[in-house]
Design a protein around this nucleic acid. Structure first.
Length: 176
DNA sequence: TAGGCCATCTGGTCCT
DNA sequence: AGGACCAGATGGCCTA
């Protein structure tokens, strides 16, 4: 098995995502014979035991870790499924999903707060009227189904790549 | 081709 | 002792 084939086999997930990926198209080939990657010599072992025992423990730990990460990904998929999405846009990355969820929750809370207090203006935490305009434009476009225009696209990116909830819409490490 | 994103393996640490 | 969690390492795929 070539290194490439080996890695593809190793990467084969046992779960199936409900979302098409934007950047990762059918790269994973389901395989029951998951090859083991070979890394450098093992470092000091805290636990004693035969190599066979250690091998079994490692294999079980790998299975658990894989399962744990699949659960984490399933939770992320569930989160994606309840977030508004642009029709032609495909799956958000993990970090985009978390940022968007963070901003979206905050926007909903801000909307509730304003309706409770009958305030026509955003809170002082909102940086500017333009910022509020962006937020309300985006939510209204989502609600009206007009979320496929270029304006909506740019607003969507604004939501995904910025953090609105700390008084300033700080860019939080996005490359965009 | 470089950089981003991902799945997986791995060893260490903490908890039950 | 064993499981959960975490971060680093590794290498493949995809896009700009």
């Amino acid at each position: 098995m070539t290194p490439k084939e080996q890695c593809v086999a190793v990467s084969a997930p046992k779960y199936t995502s409900t979302f098409p990926t934007r950047r990762f198209k059918s790269k994973h080939v389901p395989s029951e014979n998951v090859a083991k990657k070979t890394y450098g010599a093992p470092q000091t072992h805290r636990r004693l035991g035969s190599d066979v025992q250690k091998g079994r423990r490692r294999s079980k730990a790998n299975d658990r870790e894989r399962h744990r990460m699949h659960n984490l990904n399933s939770a992320l998929d569930a989160l994606r499924s309840i977030l508004p999405a642009l029709p032609e846009d495909s799956k958000l990355t993990k970090i985009e999903t978390l940022r968007f969820a963070h901003n979206y929750i905050w926007a909903l809370m801000e909307t509730l707060r304003m309706s409770d207090q009958q305030e026509p203006y955003p809170s002082e935490r909102m940086r500017s009227a333009a910022e509020w305009e962006n937020l309300s434009q985006f939510t209204s476009k989502i609600k009206s189904g007009q979320s496929n225009g270029s304006r909506a696209q740019s607003l969507f990116k604004l939501y995904v790549n910025n953090d609105f909830s700390f008084g300033r819409s700080s860019n939080i490490g996005s490359k965009n």
